[in-house]
């Protein structure tokens, strides 16, 4: 389920120490937070670390949140910054084998879903992965994604279209092989 809309009041309530608001926000956004981190880091463990740090940061920084009607963008910017910080620190271990594991070790969901995610992580470049994952998991418009990634909207749009085409081709090839 994509999360294009997050109630700003949840953050305001969190700032007042409302645990229920935190829980609600987590349930609405955890997949987007984790998926976005995964699209940048390409490593499940690092993505989980960032997810943890991001939610702690979201809760503790709620008091400084400036309501502009874009709470999800605020959260995802925190995620992005934590990921970039992790990448800069040189501690990220990109594990290409891991994508294969997605298909083999995870029992839930369909194989096809896993394959598509695996292909997205393996075949798309750094920016393409983020754009496709953000659009898929949040339902955000290209303009909003462009703001988070600090890219021109046109670039986001063309990269998105190219990525979908690339994924489609890869999947058709895989289908043909199987």
């Amino acid at each position: 389920m994509s999360v294009a809309y997050v109630d700003e009041n949840l953050i305001i309530r969190m700032a007042a120490g409302d645990g229920a608001a935190f829980k609600e926000l987590y349930e609405q956004t955890s997949s987007a937070v984790y998926g976005f981190a995964l699209s940048i880091l390409k490593n499940k463990h690092d993505a989980e670390d960032v997810m943890h740090d991001a939610f702690i940061k979201v809760y503790t920084a709620a008091v400084t949140y400036k309501p502009m009607g874009k709470p999800l963008a605020w959260i995802l910017t925190i995620v992005k910054n934590l990921c970039y910080s992790k990448v800069r620190s040189g501690t990220v271990c990109e594990d290409l084998e891991e994508y294969e594991d997605l298909v083999r070790t995870d029992e839930s969901g369909t194989i096809l879903d896993k394959v598509i995610l695996q292909e997205a992580l393996a075949k798309l470049d750094f920016e393409e992965r983020q754009i496709v994952i953000l659009h898929s998991l949040t339902g955000m418009k290209h303009r909003e994604i462009a703001e988070i990634l600090e890219l021109p909207t046109g670039t986001v749009l063309s990269k998105y279209n190219r990525s979908i085409k690339k994924l489609r081709n890869e999947l058709e090839e895989k289908g043909g092989e199987q």
Binding site: M1, K23, E27, G35, Y59, L102, G109, K114, L117, L137
Partner: peptide, 19 residues
Amino acid sequence: ESLNTAVADITPNILDDLM
């Protein structure tokens, strides 16, 4: 839809730890 489902399936649940 597949990306949504796949990510949702592998997203770890760390809510209790966070709280």
